[in-house]
Structure formats: structure tokens, C-alpha cells
């Protein structure tokens, strides 16, 4: 039998001590500002974390799905008996805590999980790594004007995918364990004090206020009923795609883009089979060995990205859109292609 989850509380100035305590059990990743933007990094000795960030520039998906990952190794030296035989590359899965992850990025991992971990396919590395990670979310009290999480089944204090959710109550941090894993982490961090009702009310208010502060909204209600071919042949794709330069910024920053490519790299006789992030924005993504490319044109590639997120995923998994409204693509697309507008165009077609 498991005990009910009880909200815990600790002083914010004890946060450094909390992280140091976690380090005994976990590899601890926290947000740091370095060379101009925030990123998750292993916590260094004697250092705390900087929780003033809005969000990290890149989503933390790379900790579960690394941009480049050695899957197998092999030798092509035929004097050796097992030449050309793939052997799984050794790798470690130390217990890891990502502390300060935003709720949208944690929810994104659940959305991606349906692709890598389903009755049909089970990606062992994704699954093992995700299991080894404990996600300690930090609710967003100051969401950006480009955040639209509340429109896509998410929110600034959304709990799905998280093991613990932290509420910043200024002097205190309220820690809400959401899973057994999360409860264990709080114990490891020495967080034992139960939150009083006043603090829980404050946390509730904080969440409500943050949700109201989300100023950007997108419609999604009709996407599921739309005819896929109508959307595919919609007249607006020309306009949406014109500015696109087909770079991978949107896909690489996106917490729910999961596509990869597999490559063999051989140096002398030793080879690695590597999987790398790939992007549907790149022509090479769909180039066939025959030379034919079913998505040779920019329009086709741009359409694919939005159709995948806002229609194919919706239809296939009945799990909502493959977007958590983090707004990264809106903020960093160099030519200002705004997914919020594409939501409107597709939903209102």
C-alpha cells in the first residue's frame, strides 16, 4: 500500500542544500545561463541553480533522446571473427534528476513516449533513459506572451509527466510529489515538512493566476474532425511556407519533435552506428535511394511538420496535438513562421 501524496514545503534558501543532498543519489541537472541563454547542466560543486529563467533555449528532450547517440559498435576487420556484427554500445543510465524543468517540457516527454513506447514498438534506450530520470518541475509564474500551453491540454503548472511540481512561494518552495519516484526524490533531498493549508492555498492561487496570465490562445477543437485531404490540399500552405528557409530551428528546439536518422560511421576498422536528430525540414530526410524525393519542395516539408503535429498525431493517437505550447518555435523561427497562426488556419479551414 502506498501512502497518499502530501505536499511538502521548504525554505527557498535551503534549495542549494536540497540540490546537494540530491547529488548523493542522482546526477542533478539544473538551469544555468551560459553564453547568453539558459540550458540544463549538471550542477557544479558549491553552486545553486538559477530559477529566474523563463525557459531554456533548447528543450531538455536531449536528455532522453540525445542529439547524437551511439547505438551499436562493430568492426569491419574481417580477420576478426565477429566482423560486421553489431553489438550494443555500452552506456550508463545513472539515476538523474532534472530540477526546474518546465511543465510543458515534461508533458512533451509524455507525448513523445507514445511514439517510442507503445504496444507495437518499444525503443529500449528511450524507455530506460526516461525511467532513469526524475522530473522535478517548476511552475511558470511569469509565462511568456508566446506561451499557449493552456490551449493544448497543458498549463504553467500542468502535472502530467512530472514526478514533483515546485511552486515558488517567494520565501518558500512548495513541493508536490506526483509519483512514487517523486516522493523518493523528496526524501533523498531531505524535504520532509508537510505543507500547511495556507501554503497550499497560496500554491493554488499562484497556479490560477499563472493560468490567467497566459495571453496567447489557439483553437484546436475542430482539428480531429477535419478531413485529412482537405487540410493537405488547403490553399494556405503556399503563404505559410513562403518565408520558410527550411532550417531545423523549429524541429531542433521543439520538445515534441522526435525524428531521427541512423548513420554508420567507420574510422579505420572500427565502426559506430549512430542515431542523430533529423528534421522533416531537410530535403535529405525523405530522399529515397532511387533518387526520388517525395517531399522535394519546401511547401511539402513545411506542410508535413504542421500536419504531423496538428493532424496525423491527433488522428493516430487520439491524444491531442503534438504540441505543448512552449512557444520556442514562435520565438526563434528566424522568419517568424508562427505555429499559432497555423493552428488557426487549420482549425478554421
Amino acid at each position: 500500500m502506498t501512502c497518499p501524496m502530501t505536499d511538502k514545503i521548504f525554505k527557498k534558501r535551503e534549495f542549494g542544500g536540497f540540490l546537494r543532498a540530491l547529488k548523493k543519489t542522482y546526477e542533478v541537472l539544473v538551469p544555468f545561463k551560459e553564453q547568453g541563454f539558459y540550458r540544463f547542466k549538471p550542477i557544479a560543486d558549491g553552486e545553486g541553480a538559477d530559477l529566474r529563467f523563463t525557459n531554456t533555449r533548447l528543450s531538455p528532450k536531449s536528455f532522453v533522446l540525445p542529439q547524437s547517440e551511439r547505438m551499436f559498435e562493430f568492426t569491419v576487420d574481417e580477420k576478426i571473427e565477429d566482423a560486421h556484427i553489431l553489438k550494443e554500445a555500452t552506456r550508463a543510465y545513472p539515476p538523474t534528476a532534472i530540477v526546474g524543468i518546465r511543465p510543458c517540457d515534461a508533458k512533451a516527454m509524455r507525448l513523445v513516449d507514445v511514439n517510442f513506447n507503445n504496444p507495437e514498438f518499444r525503443d529500449p534506450w528511450w524507455v530506460t533513459r526516461l525511467n532513469s530520470i526524475t522530473l522535478v518541475g517548476l511552475g511558470c509564474t511569469e509565462p511568456c506572451s508566446t506561451c499557449f500551453c493552456t490551449s493544448v491540454n497543458c498549463g504553467p503548472f500542468h502535472e502530467e509527466g512530472l514526478d514533483v511540481l515546485l511552486f515558488d512561494l517567494e520565501e518558500y518552495l512548495l513541493a508536490r510529489p506526483l509519483t512514487e519516484k517523486g516522493k523518493g526524490l523528496l526524501q533523498s533531498g531531505g524535504v520532509e515538512r508537510d505543507a500547511d493549508e495556507g501554503s497550499r492555498n497560496k500554491a493554488h492561487k499562484l497556479r490560477r493566476e499563472a493560468e490567467q496570465r497566459i495571453s496567447s490562445h489557439v483553437p484546436t477543437d475542430k482539428l480531429g474532425q477535419k478531413n485529412v485531404n482537405d487540410l493537405f490540399d488547403a490553399p494556405f500552405w503556399d503563404d505559410v511556407a513562403f518565408a520558410c528557409i527550411n532550417c531545423g530551428t523549429c524541429t531542433f528546439l521543439c520538445p515534441t519533435c522526435w525524428c531521427f536518422d541512423i548513420q554508420d560511421e567507420v574510422i579505420r576498422a572500427e565502426g559506430d552506428r549512430i542515431r542523430n536528430w533529423d528534421s522533416c525540414m531537410f530535403p535529405l530526410f525523405t530522399l529515397h535511394a532511387s533518387g526520388h524525393n517525395p517531399r522535394a519542395e519546401k511547401l511539402q516539408r513545411v506542410r508535413q511538420r504542421f500536419m504531423h503535429k496538428l493532424k496525423y498525431y491527433v488522428d493516430k493517437y487520439k491524444n491531442g496535438v503534438a504540441c505543448v505550447g512552449c512557444g520556442r518555435c514562435v520565438r526563434y523561427c528566424p522568419v517568424n513562421i508562427d505555429i499559432r497562426e497555423v493552428f488557426r488556419l487549420m482549425n478554421e479551414l
Binding site: L58, I245, C247, G248, T251, S279, P334
Partner: peptide
């Protein structure tokens, strides 16, 4: 060091 090989520089 932070390059993601997204090729935005090239494509812009």
C-alpha cells in the same frame, strides 16, 4: 560548441 547543425546560418 553549441551548434545543433540546424543549418539556419546556411539557409538564411
Amino acid at each position: 560548441k553549441d551548434c545543433t547543425r540546424c543549418y539556419a546560418c546556411r539557409n538564411a
